[in-house]
């Protein structure tokens, strides 16, 4: 049986590093280039407001800083979920995953609110270059968070139905890495876009 467990554990290469973790870090390395491109497009066009509203006219710093707190706390709960999974304690893994997903959903809810508010204040998608690049950057990040939330909720269902092939703790850890990456991208976005006025 031991050999069976090993087989269904993480496929380790000859160097003892887990394949999927190395794959995940490579993927995160290339995602830096993707978000780097979007952030530099925004930095290039943040001054081009044309006839539309300027950044500081529409940004609501208190609200956005609260959403940054929320995403930071969701990173904490994610780490707790990963360490619970490492200890094979299914109950708290499921609990912390659900809390992380709910906090993520709150963050995205806040963003949907922010976009609707900006739209009503006159910042349409094609109003100005600032608008287009802001919506694409934060929209891309929002989509990544939403995908993360769906993965978290689905992971909760899969853990309860015991449907996860391979090692359960490693799957939770991979989704954890993805979630933390989305959080550190928001750390960079929050500082460069919201806090540094043009």
């Amino acid at each position: 049986m031991a050999e069976l467990v090993q087989e269904h554990g993480a496929q380790h290469g000859s160097t003892g590093i887990s394949n999927i973790k190395l794959g995940m870090w490579l993927f995160l390395g290339s995602e830096c280039l993707l978000f780097g491109g979007l952030i530099s497009t925004y930095m290039l066009y943040r001054g081009r407001v044309g006839e539309g509203p300027t950044p500081m006219q529409v940004f609501d710093i208190p609200f956005t800083s609260v959403s940054s707190f929320v995403l930071l706390m969701s990173s904490l709960t994610m780490v707790l979920a990963v360490s619970a999974a490492a200890k094979a304690d299914d109950r708290s893994t499921v609990l912390w995953l659900t809390v992380t997903a709910l906090l993520g959903a709150t963050f995205v809810g806040g963003q949907v609110y922010e976009f609707t508010a900006f739209y009503n204040e006159g910042l349409g998608f094609s109003t100005s270059l600032f608008a287009s690049s802001f919506y694409v950057l934060t929209g891309f990040h929002g989509v990544h968070v939403t995908v993360g939330i769906i993965m978290l909720f689905a992971l909760v269902a899969m853990v309860r139905r015991n449907r996860i092939p391979g090692s359960k703790s490693e799957t939770v850890e991979m989704i954890g890495l993805y979630w933390h990456f989305v959080d550190i991208v928001w750390i960079v976005i929050f500082t460069l876009i919201y806090l540094i006025p043009v």
Binding site: L102, G104, A105, T106, V108, G109, T146, I150, F153
Partner: peptide, 11 residues
Amino acid sequence: IGSAVVILSFS
């Protein structure tokens, strides 16, 4: 559906 409910109603 779960996340949509939370996101939409919260917003």
